[in-house]
Amino acid sequence: MRPFEYGNPSTVAQAVALLGPQWDEAAVLAGGTDLLSLMKDYIVSPKRLVNIKNIRALGGVREEKAGLRIGAAVTLEELYEHPGPLGRYPALRTAIEGVSSPQMRGMGTVGGDLLQRPRCWYFRNGFGLLARNAKGQPLVPGGDNRYHAIFANSGPAYFVCPSSLAPALVTLGASVRLEGPKGARELPVAQLFQIPKDANEREHAIAPQEILAEILIPASAASTRNATYEVRERQFMDWPLATASVALRLEGREVRQAQIVLGEVAPTPWRAEAAERELAGKTLDEAAAARAGEAATQGAHPLSRNGYKVQLVRVAVQRALLAAIA
């Protein structure tokens, strides 16, 4: 890790002022579980870290009329310790449980989960976010891509969005508040993620001088039947191989509206619109869930080693749907 200076502001404004217009000038330090590892591997080397854990306004979990407000610096464990609200968002609760290490849950923050960098092993081994060799050729298509994207993977990005909570939050229609030098702006969680078009873009629609301050789950989401299903190789702390989060508005067993979002299969949380359409107006039973699972695979283009993820999508969607109505 390179030396850096350390700022420990107590207000958002102070924190924003400590950030710079370029990514390599300063980085926000929350739980640090991703950032410090990236720095130890010299994948990023910011010259300054701005600790945001002592900013009061970034903490706390509050239920308000508008919905559930979660400070970005709230740790996953702190959020988990609000069983009341989480009881209405089982999709989110399951996603938190999926971060199975108590240490990781106790350190990692909700904001950090959303803004962590991809786990793509080419990126982590120093070949850049877009995983290219010295000649600029992409390494993922001809390399070991077992954990890479099956959607939106025609380049230049092949990594998958690593956020554990994003599929659930997108499904629940959550938004984020970003604070920057010019004030605050709100963004649906879905729009926080973007597919970089070239080497100058990041995978998050956040500027270097902005801070992710808060996550809001709208009150209306509490009346959905929602669930998350993760396919995991290990119970030990590990990344799911595929995730599906669903939120349903039902009348009886008939689906009025469905939100289905996949994780670990695309560079962003991946909305399975065909599956949503497939379900609309249908009675949700095992057969309908299976059809939705099948529909969710529409548009999948597996690479040489990740064809199994297509099947995992099928199953994850089916199981998440059945869990939502269980």
């Binding site: 982590r124 119970q235 590990d238």
Partner: peptide, 23 residues
């Protein structure tokens, strides 16, 4: 191992996977 680059892709305990107590 990655034949394109000659690099080991998982020289860490995140992706060099060992089972945990619950596995």
């Amino acid at each position: 191992m990655d034949q394109q680059t000659g690099t080991c892709l998982n020289p860490n305990m995140e992706f060099y996977k060992l089972g945990g107590i619950d596995d």
